[in-house]
Amino acid sequence: MEQGTVKWFNAEKGSGFIERENGDDVFVHFSAIQGDGFKSLDEGQAVTFDVEEGQRGPQAANVQKA
């Protein structure tokens, strides 16, 4: 798993970007967020995640709040 920080997340659209510790920013969709309840992330929040190849390039998967 990688570690990173939420660069921004739009709760209305359900997507945003995570700033990786090593590498380019990666797209995140709300469906990749693990946990119960409303799936959203806050700017500056620390997260851990896997990276998968999506239709438009790398994207975060199995996102967990650190």
Rank of each mutant, 00 (worst) to 15 (best):
M1L: 13
E2Y: 15
E2G: 07
E2M: 13
Q3C: 15
Q3V: 13
G4H: 01
G4W: 04
G4M: 00
G4S: 01
G4D: 00
G4R: 01
T5A: 05
T5S: 08
V6M: 04
V6D: 00
V6A: 02
K7A: 04
K7W: 02
K7E: 00
W8L: 03
W8F: 08
F9S: 01
F9V: 01
F9G: 01
F9M: 02
N10T: 05
N10D: 11
N10F: 03
A11N: 10
A11C: 14
E12V: 13
E12R: 14
K13V: 10
K13L: 10
G14N: 04
G14L: 04
S15Y: 15
S15F: 15
S15A: 11
G16W: 06
G16S: 00
F17G: 00
F17D: 01
I18L: 08
E19Y: 13
E21F: 10
E21W: 11
N22F: 11
N22P: 06
N22Q: 10
G23E: 06
G23T: 05
G23L: 07
G23C: 07
D24C: 14
D24Q: 13
D24E: 12
D24N: 12
D24K: 13
D25S: 10
D25L: 15
V26L: 12
F27V: 02
F27Y: 10
V28W: 05
V28P: 00
V28H: 02
H29E: 04
H29D: 04
H29R: 05
F30L: 04
F30D: 00
F30A: 05
F30I: 06
S31L: 07
S31K: 08
S31P: 00
A32S: 09
A32H: 06
A32D: 07
A32K: 07
A32Q: 07
I33Y: 02
I33A: 04
I33W: 04
I33V: 07
I33T: 04
Q34H: 10
Q34R: 10
Q34W: 10
Q34P: 06
G35W: 10
G35H: 08
G35V: 10
D36I: 12
D36Q: 12
D36R: 11
D36M: 12
D36C: 14
D36K: 13
G37E: 06
G37F: 07
G37L: 06
G37P: 06
K39Q: 08
K39P: 06
K39D: 04
K39S: 06
L41T: 03
L41Q: 01
D42H: 15
D42T: 15
E43W: 14
E43Y: 13
E43R: 15
E43G: 12
E43C: 15
G44L: 03
G44I: 02
Q45N: 06
Q45I: 08
Q45M: 11
A46Q: 12
A46M: 12
A46R: 14
A46D: 08
V47A: 03
T48R: 10
T48M: 11
T48H: 08
T48G: 03
T48I: 11
F49H: 01
F49T: 00
D50N: 14
D50A: 11
V51E: 04
V51T: 06
E52R: 11
E52M: 13
E53V: 13
E53P: 11
G54D: 07
G54A: 07
G54E: 05
Q55A: 13
Q55E: 12
Q55H: 12
R56V: 08
R56C: 14
R56E: 08
R56I: 07
G57F: 07
G57N: 06
G57I: 05
P58G: 05
P58N: 07
P58C: 09
Q59D: 01
Q59N: 05
A61M: 11
A61Q: 09
A61I: 14
A61E: 04
A61K: 13
A61L: 10
N62I: 04
N62D: 02
N62M: 06
V63W: 01
V63K: 00
V63N: 00
Q64W: 11
Q64F: 10
K65P: 11
K65W: 09
A66R: 12
A66H: 11
